[in-house]
């Protein structure tokens, strides 16, 4: 389903139906998924529709830019060690409109097939509301439904001298970079700083050094347009500082 479409077109997969058809001198965008129906009018010709995975923080309502991934089992990491694991994260499907060649497309719709749940990270008086997701831990890249779940390659680094017991990680959507091609992929890291504090962030630079693409496991993945990446908000921290434990 992910990709670039020139109207008129229609695409259907896993109960999601998306189409852009001409009605008179206008274009009509229609999307149905389950009981949810969206219809919008598009003015002007020569527009392109882009469907790609976006940060999972827009549905059912955008109330937080933070995603908390709870590990199914607690991990123990010795002081000074570094390990790589694979987790899953929820996917939201973003539908954008742009002029051909435009690098700043406009989001027109977003939907999700993944489970929706929110949680609080920290204290009631000063904690942070986060989108919640529970993930299994994999030692190799798992095979997932790309319309529902993505692969998160996570590097855990314990910079402290103590053992660290890790059961969750919180990520800020402002730093998220999603790549897709058959699967959906993100690469992040958790740096354990002390007994209760850690810092999380995403790998902005793609592995082969060329922006816009990620080459890994002999696969070339395309960089997705993000909802948070499109906002030209200055002074927004791309990292998340976990101060209430992990």
């Amino acid at each position: 389903m992910y990709g670039y479409y020139d109207p008129p077109f229609s695409v259907e997969q896993e109960g999601i139906f998306i189409s852009v058809e001409r009605t008179g001198d206008k274009w009509t965008y229609r999307r149905t998924s389950g009981k949810d129906e969206v219809e919008k009018l598009i003015l002007g010709d020569g527009k392109r529709i882009i469907i790609n995975p976006v940060e999972p923080l827009n549905t059912p309502k955008e109330i937080t830019p933070n995603l908390l991934i709870e590990f199914e089992k607690t991990l123990l990491l010795a002081g000074g060690e570094k390990e790589q694991i694979f987790l899953t994260f929820p996917i939201e499907i973003g539908i954008f409109i742009s002029d051909v060649g435009d690098k700043n497309p406009q989001l027109i719709d977003v939907l999700s097939l993944a489970r929706q749940k929110f949680t609080l990270y920290g204290e009631v008086s000063n904690g942070v509301v986060c989108k919640h997701w529970k993930s299994k831990i994999y030692s190799a890249s798992p095979s997932l439904n790309p319309l529902q779940e993505g692969i998160l390659e996570l590097t855990l680094r314990n910079t402290s001298s103590d053992w660290a017991s890790i059961s969750k990680a919180v990520f800020s959507a402002y730093g998220m970079k999603l790549y897709y091609d058959g699967d959906v992929y993100m690469k992040a890291r958790v740096d354990i700083l002390s007994r209760n504090t850690a810092e999380t962030g995403f790998e902005i630079q793609s592995i082969n050094g060329e922006m816009g693409y990620l080459v890994k496991d002999k696969k070339i993945r395309k960089e997705a347009f993000g909802v948070y990446g499109l906002r030209m908000l200055g002074l927004v921290p791309l990292k998340f500082y976990m101060e209430w434990g992990f």
């Binding site: 929706q116 749940k117 929110f118 949680t119 609080l120 990270y121 009631v124 509301v129 919640h132």
Partner: peptide, 11 residues
């Protein structure tokens, strides 16, 4: 409650 997104998991 578990299926309701805005009913927080924690607390």
């Amino acid at each position: 409650i578990d299926k309701e997104p805005f009913a927080l998991r924690n607390p």
